[in-house]
Amino acid sequence: MPNMFHMGEYAAFVWPAYGLTAIVLIGLFIISLRSLRQRQWVFAELKESMEETKTARQQPPAANDEPGNEWPDDDGPNSNGPGNSPKASS
């Protein structure tokens, strides 16, 4: 293989063509893998938090006195005014 890696006068066109192909394909592969890993993580977290909430609710029978404690993060944006918050209503 005497001419391997020797592209003569066309080196400035051949190598960028191969380099660009490598960058695009490797880049897409990494993006796809990363997004899958991220979704796996989000899914596991969400499932875990929902399982926890479910068991927390099942254990104390009187737990529904204060529903605001069950979903602390999601109450804020949904309440339109002070009268709508679950804590205030209970």
Binding site: L36, R39, Q40, V42, F43, L46, K47, M50, T53, K54, R57, Q58, A63, N64, P67, E70, W71, D74, D75, N78, P86
Partner: peptide, 28 residues
């Protein structure tokens, strides 16, 4: 996975809206 995440979030939102109304909370 994205579709599953969306479905779980929907369940969560539904649970939340039921939770606010009180009596349905324990069904979830």
């Amino acid at each position: 996975l994205a579709r599953k995440i969306r479905a779980l979030r929907m369940i969560r939102v539904q649970a939340e809206s039921k939770g606010e109304s009180g009596p349905y909370l324990r069904e979830i």
